[in-house]
Design a protein around this nucleic acid. Sequence first.
DNA 1: CTCACATCCTGGATGC
DNA 2: TGCATCCAGGATGTGA
Length: 297
Amino acid sequence: MPELPEVETVRRGLAPVLVGAKLIRVEQRRPDLRFPFPADFIARLQGQRIEALDRRAKYLLMRLSSGETLLMHLGMSGRFLIETADDSGKNPQKPGYFYQNTDLSVKHEHVVFHTEEGHRIGYVDPRRFGFMDLIPQDGCDEAPWLRDLGVEPLSNHFDAVVLQRVLAGSKAPLKSALLDQKRIAGLGNIYVCEALHRAGLSPLRVAGTLSGTSAKARQRSDALALAIRTVLQEAVAAGGSSLKDFAAADGSLGYFQHAFRVYDQEGAACPVQGCSGVVERQVQAGRSTFYCARCQT
DNA sequence: CTCACATCCTGGATGC
DNA sequence: TGCATCCAGGATGTGA
């Protein structure tokens, strides 16, 4: 579930259950995910009260009463499964929640949080590209995971001028530059493709061409900054995107995938009014890029 | 420094 | 049905 809108959706789903709750028991089912769990992981969590649940880029940050922060990254396939004490598995699904205890979610449930309030929150991650760490709350922006992250695209600190600055001098393809978390934090493959299409910009264009003082560069960076904000806002409002993997097990109700204009739409007509192009797929830096070569220039 | 690429891991879809 | 192959939302470390 891993781009910014999906992580934000998870945060909003978990917050009502976790914020203010006390962790009375934590289970750790294996020594590592993508990386080893930190030393004394269980002991540093059990007994802590959760004071807040924040998000930075694609990271979830659980603020603990001990003064530490539990940092969690969902990788490609990480998700949370929430059950309440009186939940016999028949409760209706709620946005951002994953209820069904399928074989897959049991087999790949690596961490379980039990709260004093009677909730059981399982972390399920088949591919184990996710990870967890404990970092100090004071100066947590200086933690290695967060230190080099770029601007938060939904914050007030992001606009066309900032976009021009972070792309200045880059000879990388625009698509690759936007995926670079050091420049803008939180974009992934889907929303980069979608934002570029909305802005009418080619993923193959040299990123640095959006910088500079020409009217064209200004116009392009304006369009892209707006497209990035808009697509992320719409996706967050839709509860993120639920993709086809683990379809039977996936209890997510995010529905932004129905609003994709180019992502995973190879061969479809370009949805731009008056454009006669067809959505193409091209591999860039080892990953699929979807775009319309006619209206994205 | 910047960029392209392989790599970690598992499961699903597709093709023979 | 079985098996091989390819693909997937991410990010890091390497080597050029």
